[in-house]
Design a protein around this nucleic acid. Structure first.
Lengths: 130, 130
DNA sequence: CAGCATCCCCGCAGATACTG
DNA sequence: CAGTATCTGCGGGGATGCTG
């Protein structure tokens, strides 16, 4: 049971071989496809599940669930399930998560800022081998 | 032909659906399994292919080649192939690549520093559902 | 609403063999 | 040495259907 979700996804794209270096796993989690987007969204405010799903867009329930569970287990995301009907679950960043999210956002921001240079480099690269 | 390597790997774990947001692709590249390690290694100095392979360890030639080609195409890594026999190829960071590498290293460093907290959180999480 | 459980497919990683 | 080309598996990820 352990992780509770389907077959303990780990959200690691690749487990770096073995137990090699555990920090790699965390890095995988925060830089994973949806991990990045979740962290950045939650940097603004807390979100409900569906709300977050809409905000990110194009994410399946399954993947969002997996991502949130993994991040929660790592202590980066706080899950607040209110015992009401219909169910209401709020997700927010922990202090630890906020630190991670800021790093990730910095990287994402850098990427968008330097996108021009990257695309220029790509064109040069592609053209050089026609 | 275009990318020249095997079936244009793109090194993107997932192409984020479509052309959605191109910056995501760069983010994928620099945070990819081997991308992270390559960038961090190259932050110290330039490396030859095999040298880099040994430094990283447990990376297949194929994946290292793919990673380097992708990063080169993005303008993050400079490839210097000397026309000698036996072949000698040196890889180093471009200015752009150095910026990216520093961001990535910062994230990696943070991860190692906070590893204790993460593992503590994991134990608590796992224990809470036995 | 917020999940959990299954099925299934495609794509990436790894292994292997071959070149300049 | 520094790649390229081809084959194969297996697992991440989407789609679908069901619960409290």
């Amino acid at each position: 049971m352990a992780v509770s979700n389907q077959s303990q996804p780990t959200l690691a794209r690749y487990d770096t071989g073995e137990a090699q270096c555990p920090y790699r796993l965390v890095l995988e989690h925060v830089t994973s496809r949806w991990g990045v987007l979740v962290l950045i969204e939650l940097l603004d405010r807390s979100y409900r599940f569906s709300e977050l799903r809409r905000a990110i867009g194009r994410v399946s329930e399954k993947m969002l669930t997996q991502t949130l569970q993994t991040l929660e287990r790592d202590g980066l995301v706080h899950r607040d399930a209110k015992p009401v009907i219909p169910p209401r679950v709020d997700y927010s960043l922990t202090d630890l998560g906020r630190e991670a999210a800021e790093q990730v956002r910095a990287l994402a921001t850098w990427t968008t800022e330097r996108m021009e240079d990257v695309e220029k480099a790509r064109r040069a690269y592609d053209e050089a081998r026609t």
